[in-house]
Structure formats: C-alpha cells, structure tokens
C-alpha cells in the first residue's frame, strides 16, 4: 500500500471520515494512527463544500499528492457525478472521486453501512418497528437514526457517553461485514489508487 501521506481525502462529514478510516485499516491491515494529522483529510460539510476546497486541492497536487473526493449520490447519482465533473473542469483541479453508496446507485454512505450490518435479528426489529409506527407517527426514522441505534445497541451502557460522536464509533467486524460484496466498489476504487 502506498503511504497515506501520498493522498489527500475529502469527505462530506466526520461520520464518513471515521468509517473510511476503519474500512481502510480493515482492507489494508494497517494502523492509520496518523489519520487526521497534517490535514490528511478535509471535511467539506456536504457535497457542495468541495467547491470551497480549491486551494487545498491545488496545494495537494502541487505537493505531488493525489486528491480523492468522497460524496453521497443522495437522490440523483447522475446529477452528483455531473456536479463533480463540471467543478473539476471549471476549477481546473485534479482529483478522482467515489460516489456512495456504490459508485452507481442513488443513496448515501449510511445505506451501504446498514446493508453490511450483520446483526439481522436487530435489523428485523427495526423493520417491525417501522411497520408498527406507520399509523402512529407522521415520519419514519431515517437511515442515520437506524444506524446509530443499531450501533448503540451493542455498546455497553457503562462505555456510552451521552451522545456518541462520529469519531468514537468503531466499525468492527463483529457488527459489520466489511468484506461484503456491497462494499466491493469502494474496495476496488481504493485498491486502484492505494494498492
């Protein structure tokens, strides 16, 4: 694997950055202790925030590093891809990109993480719960809420803080199948650049 210092990563939020760190450590069997130091990655606060990172993209390229941008497709994959292609051409910056959940479908990173969550019994409970509240509440829990609740259910209360931060959440193999085929597009993308 190429040293992590050869890259600058751009994520929409800290949640994605933490999952990405854990996933990289799993895939490449390496300890990313320096993750986050010396601006290994930047948070863009939403996909549009990458437009505010032109200086960082240029600096990184000037330093001989490679820029990798990660965004969610949300409701329209094509629209998100077009946005990145247009931005890249207009700002004359260099980067490659990966669009969650799987480089082709609509959705977001939480969709794929929930998909690879292995405790199916608990996930069934959520399905039943969603079915149950259909007529009792105006809104269904969103994917982020479900994922947080799933994770929280396996953290002993004595280790819980009032609200677990994105950086504190560990994506361990007891809870998530990080080798799942659902994550293969991401794995292939990373291997193309990092391996």
């Amino acid at each position: 694997m190429k040293p992590i210092e050869h890259f600058t990563f751009y994520f929409e939020d800290k949640f994605t950055a933490k999952f990405f760190k854990d996933y990289m450590e799993f895939i490449f069997k390496t300890n990313l202790a320096t993750w986050g130091n010396n601006q290994t990655y930047y948070i863009t606060k939403g996909f549009g925030g990458v437009k505010q990172k032109v200086n960082e993209l240029e600096k990184s390229t000037g330093d001989g590093k490679q820029n990798l941008v990660f965004v969610d497709a949300d409701k329209n994959f094509k629209e998100r891809e077009d946005f990145l292609i247009k931005f890249k051409a207009e700002a004359k910056v260099q980067f490659d990109y990966f669009i969650f959940p799987n480089a082709k479908a609509t959705g977001e990173i939480e969709d794929v993480i929930y998909e690879v969550a292995i405790k199916t019994e608990l996930k069934d409970c959520f399905s039943k719960y969603e079915e149950c509240i259909k007529n009792a509440a105006p809104y269904q829990p969103d994917i982020k809420g479900k994922l947080y609740a799933y994770h929280q259910a396996f953290v002993e209360p004595k280790y819980r803080k009032n609200l677990m931060t994105d950086e504190e959440r560990e994506y361990k193999s007891e809870l998530y199948n990080l080798d799942s085929k659902e994550l293969e597009p991401l794995k292939n993308f990373l291997q193309k650049h990092l391996a």
Binding site: Q39, Y42, I43, T44, K45, G49, Q52, K53, V54, N55, E56
Partner: peptide, 12 residues
C-alpha cells in the same frame, strides 16, 4: 466565503 468555510471545517 472560502476562508469562512475553511474555519467551519477546521481546515488549516
């Protein structure tokens, strides 16, 4: 706009 966003996202 650029540097406000950078400060918000803890960019050096």
């Amino acid at each position: 706009e650029n540097f406000s966003s950078a400060l918000e996202t803890e960019t050096e």
